[in-house]
Amino acid sequence: MVDEFEELRRRMFGLAYRMLGSAAEAEDVVQDAYLRWHTADRRNVETPGAWLAKVVTNLCLNRLTAARATRESYVGPWLPEPVESAALGPLETAERRDAVSMAFLTLLERLTPPERAVFVLREAFSYGYREIAEVLDLSETHCRQLLIRARKRMGEPRRFDVPGEQRRRIVERFLDAARGGDLAELERLLAVDVVVWSDGGGRVGAALRPVEGRDKVVRFLAGIAAKFGPGGGFAHTEVNGEEGIVVWAGDVVVAVFAIEVTEGRITAVRAVLNPDKLSRFTAPGCQE
């Protein structure tokens, strides 16, 4: 019984995380699902994966209603809680990487909870309409209508147009420039219309609006480097299926950047500084 659940745990976490945009809440949902699985009458469970997907999805729908109210009063830009890519399962295709990116998860906030459920089940997990209808207790026709509306709200999907190795080299150059205070190199790596979103959640200092344009972004990033550089550092990581940087001061992680690269230039940086969203990351050299 436990083994069956453990085989599906990471998949259920991935579903809950995409639904909620919060790793902490996703873990709570998976634990709640386990408790229900533990007490369920196994004679009524034909397919464990389908049964758990239904439980997890409905637990998430209950949480999303409250989450929307909370995010409306959030201080500054809201960004999803970043997660190391390895925790999200195989991401061997561009489509799978895109479906867990910070940009994708932020766009999901445009959707109503039912639209979000249908969209995630269909686009990220390739569920058929019949399966989705069974999970949500809706008709297949209604599910199709929800998906059509969700796709319109989401807009055209973003696709990685730069090979992974090239993206890594660009981010490593960006990292070296930030460490060394090389503003000229930072400028060369940034697109003219680059945008930075920073999520401090009112807990720490962060820009309350997006920082737009190469010149403003360079000054913003230089400020972060100057603030956290002494006694800390920067390291390359992979976050949410894309290149990223973890920033620490002393033995505490203070920021995680998800970096979007398009046509050989950095076009967007999503910087999570809210300490409530950084507990899954550990400063290099401080791992237990």
Rank of each mutant, 00 (worst) to 15 (best):
A99G: 05
N274Q: 04
Q287E: 15
L52Q: 12
I148M: 06
V2N: 11
V204E: 00
Y17D: 08
K227G: 06
E238T: 13
Q31D: 15
R130S: 14
T39D: 04
V120D: 05
L136K: 08
N44R: 12
E242I: 00
P113V: 12
E4W: 07
A33H: 08
D251A: 08
G232D: 06
D276H: 10
E4M: 07
R214F: 00
R158P: 02
P113A: 12
K152L: 14
L186F: 00
G164S: 14
R43K: 08
R169E: 11
G180F: 01
P48W: 04
R167K: 07
T282Y: 03
R169Q: 11
A117Y: 12
L88C: 11
S279W: 02
R265V: 00
V196W: 09
R110S: 05
A26K: 10
V194R: 00
R116G: 04
G14L: 08
D41Q: 01
R68Y: 14
G233Q: 01
E238G: 09
A69M: 04
L79P: 02
L111K: 01
V239E: 03
E25G: 04
W248L: 07
V253R: 04
E187K: 01
R169P: 06
V254P: 05
T262E: 10
L186S: 00
P114D: 11
W78A: 08
V211G: 01
H236T: 12
D199M: 07
P90A: 08
K227S: 15
E25V: 15
A40E: 09
I170G: 02
A225E: 11
A133R: 07
G229V: 10
L111C: 14
V55W: 09
A206S: 13
Y127Q: 08
P163W: 08
G89Q: 04
G181C: 06
